[in-house]
Design a protein around this nucleic acid. Sequence first.
DNA 1: CTTTTATGTTACGATTTGTATCATAACTAA
DNA 2: TTAGTTATGATACAAATCGTAACATAAAAG
Lengths: 209, 209
Amino acid sequence: MSIDQNDLRVIKTKRGLREAFIRLLLEKGYDAISIQDIATEAEAARVTFYRHYKNKEELLIDCIDVIYENHARLTGQASNEEFRQGYSPMLAVYKQLKEDGKIFRVLSNSHAGQLLTKRLIQLFAERIQVQIEERFPKEQLLAPVEIIAYHVASAQIGLVNWWIENDQPYSPEYMARISFWLSLAGSARGFGLENISVLPPEYPTRFQN
Amino acid sequence: MSIDQNDLRVIKTKRGLREAFIRLLLEKGYDAISIQDIATEAEAARVTFYRHYKNKEELLIDCIDVIYENHARLTGQASNEEFRQGYSPMLAVYKQLKEDGKIFRVLSNSHAGQLLTKRLIQLFAERIQVQIEERFPKEQLLAPVEIIAYHVASAQIGLVNWWIENDQPYSPEYMARISFWLSLAGSARGFGLENISVLPPEYPTRFQN
DNA sequence: CTTTTATGTTACGATTTGTATCATAACTAA
DNA sequence: TTAGTTATGATACAAATCGTAACATAAAAG
């Protein structure tokens, strides 16, 4: 009847299609890729593609989901201690991208970029919102918590994009620290903290790469 | 020889194709649209499409450019006074989107979103960088001016996206003010201002919609 | 009003799409 | 290891789409 997603053949085939698709995106860009291209590159029959995906876009979504899960898994590990140290969960992201930033870049410049960025921002905003709500009473906030969270998340993910597109000019540690502090200083105001000196003492006098 | 872009027929035809394309994006999404669909919707011959655009993507880029120019024109008008008042050039953006947010939303959810968002962030980052450099000596900055500018621009455009996707829950004035202050408070730290009280006195105690 | 040129009509081959059938190979479960 | 299940490959097919061409017509430029 329906296809068994746990079958080894299915797992192999789908992974093959995903990886072939990514490679082709590097070469030709999204529009120029035909289903036959993908199948050929993956050394599979064209019919096989249609057994797993309705069309190109569905394969694209699947690719994003896989990357998204990797990110979520990585960033989910960041400890509260890391957060206080000013490294934030972003460090894990920067570190991963330092290695396989190529795939991220390809997706980022393709049809996928929109979906990928959107989902990452969504994920981070949700986490940030929880963190804010845990630490600050609602009445203290100058603005709705959603807005603050989304503002911070957009800034952080946006900076990641900038870093990737500018060939990673600074170290992951440097980027994570700056990203964290710029956001925290901004949102501290949003939290209703009149005196910004309540921030942890580790706030650096000057960032060094 | 080549096609005269000032010919009235050309202007009409291309505008028709762009508008037809936007309408179709609303209905079917990017992939499901064929060239014939666009031509039919625009009440033009399919051949005519190929006289102006190589493929779907090229038409998409053209659509983005038109919207982009509208934004640039609008935001370019924001005065220094508005900036100091805490409304920032963002107010013009929010106001425009209040009216034709539909097109923006369609593009934002399509293949185009990636390109549109990227270009908007780029534009804002460049402007912000100039403003920072005009007001603060380089040595005072805790981080490279590019990073601060990109951080702020990403946050602001990201918040616009959030606003559009959540059916514009707050007024343009409210969003512009919050966006401005969250960013300014954050970047004030980035500027190396130890005492955040150097910020203009208009800083609100609490934002109201 | 004359000239120029962008558009519509029609046509064409090549490519791509989406689906179907059946034998074979690969995997699962026992 | 074996028997049964099922995903895959090979082949085929109609329908849709693509990209380009030639020529008459309508619309704009000068």
